[in-house]
Every structure is written in C-alpha cells, then in structure tokens.
Amino acid sequence: MSDAAYIVGALMLVAGVVGAWMSANLIKRLVGVAVAHIGAILAAAAVGAPQALLIAGAAIGLATVAVGAAIAVRLQEAHGTVEAGDIDAVDRDADAKEKAT
C-alpha cells in the first residue's frame, strides 16, 4: 500500500511540475503547482516522514496557491486574460510604447 502511494505521489509530483512549467494558462499552472505539492506530501507520507514535514509542506502549498490565485485574479482584471502568451504580448507592447515615448 505504501509503495503504491509512493509511486502515485511521485507521478503526481512529476505531472504537476510539468503542468506548472509547460502550461500556457496561468490557472492551469497553479493547478499544476497544487498537484505537485499534493504529490510531494503523499510521497512523504508514504515513506513515513514526520508530521512536521507533512504539515509544513501542506502549509507552503496552500499559501503558494492562495497567493498565486490572488495574483491571477489581478492579472485577469488588468489584462482581461489569464493566458501567459497574451499577457506577455501586452507587456511587450507596453515596453515598446515606453521606449517610443
């Protein structure tokens, strides 16, 4: 049972890291972060890591996703999108305008 949990946790970690790294949508990136953290905590629990580590990992993951969601909301309000490519394009345009003025 613990070996299965360990493997599932490791797979979730890898999937989450890839999602957070590769996804073009900011919300999907945050979901990737959450999945990676849950996988890390699951793997830690499977190897019998101390509760302090599990609680610390959960607290860090929760805080990170909460702050990330707040930033994503502000980005949506400012740019009208949560697609990373669109936001980068808006930033590039702003840079070009600043340079022109």
Binding site: V17, V33, H37, A40, A44, I60, G61
Partner: peptide
C-alpha cells in the same frame, strides 16, 4: 517567480522525505 518557487518547494519536500527515509 511564485510558480518557480512553488515547483522548487515541492521538489524540496520530496527530497526531505527521501532523506528521512
């Protein structure tokens, strides 16, 4: 920056679990 750090912290938690094991 937040997402990069979060990925790093997930790796660190897993690393600590392996050290504990």
């Amino acid at each position: 920056m937040l997402i990069a750090g979060a990925v790093g912290s997930a790796l660190s938690v897993t690393g600590l679990a392996l050290i504990w094991r």
